[in-house]
Design a protein around this nucleic acid. Structure first.
Lengths: 197, 197
DNA sequence: AGTAAAACCGAACGGTCGTGCTACTAGAAC
DNA sequence: GTTCTAGTAGCACGACCGTTCGGTTTTACT
């Protein structure tokens, strides 16, 4: 890894944290340059535009997410255990990792939801892939006989994401200490309704 | 209503729409002034700071929300019918009213979740009140014997809000045409698990 | 109709924004 | 040891930011 790529990665790592807190649009080149001890122009030389920077931030965040959530969860046993593991790791990602501003995907999703452009497109794709990934684990749980055959994996993923979003809001905005407990309760109810009796 | 208040209300109405799209921070005084055919300074005379403007935007949005969601739902019969009515109106608020940028409360919640200040405080309070309002309707449904006694109204409100958030994301970011159908499915499942058998 | 107050405007302030351009510097290749 | 190149800095640009101030217009009331 050459010097350039090394710097770029360091910049992006810091950018992911900053963007989680202030948003992809709220993140300014000057601010980011200051925090990484680069000049504005020195930093900017690594990216062809702010839009490009935003896309790369999302890309980098997705790498991290895969590294601490999706991939490790595959080590869990196929079926319900893996589904549970995904949920637990997902919770941890949203509530710990993002010490400052919460999950960057949540922030970006709301910010970009109708601001057309490459960043929006990439984000929508990433989110869709993640939903499919969760749905895939659910499908396996059906195949293993853990879940009932009539369970709709996409619906399961949809509802799980809903729990994650609400937990995010309750924990971060409302400072609700019960958020995680409520999330687990909701998820258990979801599992219960999917489980083969 | 004097001229001043009239103008202020018109400005705030436009500001609510704009802020839904670009966020409370992304909304600029100049832009808002242009869209309301006022000069920047003329507009600014109505608010003592941008922060004050943001709080008033939230206040105005809450008025509207109460007028089209909370209050009309009280016309529905106590118990499950009213809970359903709340959900349906809530869905409509999130998906229709906000033609441009979605629900302003969703946008603001993510934007302000860790940006301390009066706007954040007011928003958290409003969101808490809304959750309590939903929980209140659920409690009535228990009293009416529609829901089982062991149902936790706050938990019910928590999960319902989760569905609303996910619907917002699926509909706006992912452009998922099934979003509303999935939302109703999830809500029916929630009702089913709460209903007295 | 006259007047005091309220509403609004124009211009300007110091800053910061994203983005170019040019020049310097370090290390790799020959 | 010279040449080449990738990486970074300095500086400037036009645009827009939130905010202030002094003056002008419009409204409301007697």
């Amino acid at each position: 890894m050459g010097k350039g790529e090394q710097t770029r990665t360091a910049v992006l790592d810091r950018a992911v944290e900053l963007a989680s807190a202030v948003g992809l649009e709220g993140l300014s080149i000057g601010r980011l340059a200051g925090e990484t001890r680069l000049s504005k122009s020195g930093l900017f030389a690594h990216f062809e535009s702010k839009e490009d920077l935003q896309v790369r931030i999302l890309e980098r965040a997705a790498e991290r997410f895969a590294a601490v959530v999706s991939k490790p969860a595959l080590a869990a046993r196929r079926g319900e255990p893996r589904v549970r593991e995904l949920f637990e790791r997902w919770m941890r990602w949203g509530l710990e990792v993002s010490k400052p501003g919460g999950c960057i995907f949540v922030a970006a999703s709301v910010e970009l939801d109708d601001r057309p452009g490459p960043a929006r497109d990439r984000l929508a794709q990433l989110q869709g892939e993640w939903l499919d990934f969760v749905a895939g684990a659910v499908r396996i749980a059906k195949d293993e006989g853990h879940f009932r055959p009539e369970v709709d994996p996409q619906q399961f993923a949809f509802e799980t994401y809903g729990i994650a979003l609400m937990t995010h809001l309750a924990f971060r905005l409302l400072r609700d200490g019960d958020a995680v407990r409520r999330a687990r309760l909701a998820f258990e109810r979801l599992l219960e309704s999917a489980r083969a009796s």
